[in-house]
Simulated scan of single mutants.
Amino acid sequence: MNSDIRNQDLKWQERMVDRPLDLDAVQAFVRIADYGSFTRAAEAGRTTQSAISLKLKRLEERLGCRLVERTPRHVELSARGLAFLEQARALLAAHDRACAVVAPRRRHLSIGISDHVAGPELPLLIARMTAGDPQLSIGIRIGSSGDLLRAFDRREIDTAIVRFQEGRDDGETIAEEQFGWFAAGSWRHRAGEPLPLATMPEPCGVRVLAGALLDQAGIAWTEVFTGGGVTAVAAAVAAGVGIAALSPRMVPLGTVDVGPQLGLPRLPRLPVVLYSRDRDGPAGRAVAALAAAYRTAIRG
């Protein structure tokens, strides 16, 4: 048995040096591993799911082993795939460094992301973008959707990822996210008092929507905390100051959705919209990777 295994390993090693690997196929495999989805990998690579599947199939045939285990609900790497992943990343990085030696021109991409969209995943998403092209420098601006769209229109930023804005239909909806009324687990509403809200200042669209829904439902409310960003609002909620309309991605551990308990109006699913002038080249690929990553983060 051990002899058979050694013979199989020797044959596998012979195939490895038989001909070079297809770097596009290796990149497709890495994207599948990163996003855990053929669909998201295709979106990040600006290609089709069938093209990604074909590249993976050719890579697996070239290596003589299965790299990815496909199930109806999710995608997992095989033992061989897990072993190959680190080397695949190293191979792509070495390729990029080699290209950078003879083509050192840097390209800057400025991106604006709504505070209600950015989320705790942002550092990982930036890492994925920069890993795709070492010569691409990226600047991130966090702000309100309205301010970022005005900056986009003035060409101060190249790309904006924001919440849906009334009167605009020139963007691409990349996901829709459910919001809830979150409070600390120990928080209790005092009967007869206005509902205490923690919000971001105007012109925050989520703040305006939350207030309008409460007014329509005839629920008295008062603003007890105004934070300069979602992180501050979430901290106030965790501290038991009041409740806030937030995405589940943004809330700290120990907070709960008290909307059903208090009979509050259901918050709608809010679209996340991409506006970008970069559709081609390294910058376009980076934007596509960021959009695909947000689809994964928001839809789970």
Results as ranks from 00 to 15, higher is better:
43 E>K: 11
152 F>E: 10
229 G>L: 00
71 T>R: 12
128 R>A: 15
7 N>M: 09
143 G>L: 06
111 I>F: 01
13 Q>S: 12
39 T>V: 14
264 L>I: 07
158 D>A: 10
89 R>D: 03
293 A>Y: 07
263 G>I: 03
90 A>H: 08
281 G>V: 09
77 L>M: 15
264 L>Q: 02
161 I>Y: 13
241 V>N: 01
94 A>G: 14
289 A>V: 04
254 G>H: 01
39 T>M: 11
209 L>K: 08
299 R>D: 12
64 G>D: 02
210 A>E: 08
66 R>N: 09
36 G>D: 14
284 G>I: 08
286 A>N: 05
284 G>W: 06
32 I>S: 13
160 A>C: 10
220 A>C: 02
236 A>D: 10
236 A>M: 00
176 E>D: 04
27 Q>R: 12
279 R>H: 14
101 V>M: 07
81 G>K: 06
113 I>K: 00
131 A>Y: 10
263 G>H: 09
154 R>T: 01
238 A>Q: 13
110 S>I: 05
28 A>K: 08
145 S>E: 10
267 L>V: 12
79 A>R: 13
48 T>M: 05
81 G>Y: 06
28 A>H: 06
90 A>D: 15
189 H>W: 15
245 A>V: 02
265 P>G: 08
36 G>E: 15
105 R>H: 12
170 D>M: 00
222 T>K: 15
186 S>N: 06
261 Q>I: 02
278 D>M: 08
248 P>K: 03
188 R>W: 00
59 L>R: 08
165 Q>M: 09
126 I>G: 01
230 V>Q: 07
65 C>Q: 14
43 E>F: 04
1 M>G: 13
42 A>L: 07
7 N>V: 03
21 L>T: 07
291 A>D: 04
150 R>L: 10
14 E>V: 07
63 L>Y: 06
6 R>M: 07
56 L>H: 12
215 D>A: 14
59 L>G: 11
41 A>G: 12
219 I>K: 14
46 R>V: 07
123 P>C: 00
48 T>P: 11
296 T>E: 12
292 A>C: 09
48 T>F: 00
134 P>I: 15
56 L>P: 13
88 A>V: 10
88 A>F: 04
66 R>Q: 15
127 A>N: 14
63 L>V: 11
92 L>I: 01
100 A>V: 02
29 F>T: 06
192 G>R: 11
69 E>D: 13
40 R>E: 03
196 P>R: 02
210 A>C: 11
146 G>M: 15
223 E>M: 14
291 A>M: 00
259 G>F: 11
181 W>C: 09
210 A>I: 02
233 V>N: 03
50 S>Q: 09
88 A>E: 05
24 D>A: 13
103 A>S: 13
253 L>V: 03
178 Q>S: 08
18 D>Q: 12
176 E>Y: 00
260 P>K: 08
142 I>K: 14
101 V>W: 05
300 G>R: 07
167 G>K: 09
27 Q>N: 04
202 E>K: 12
69 E>Y: 02
112 G>Q: 09
223 E>S: 10
258 V>K: 01
294 Y>C: 10
179 F>Q: 14
38 F>T: 05
149 L>F: 09
232 A>F: 04
114 S>D: 15
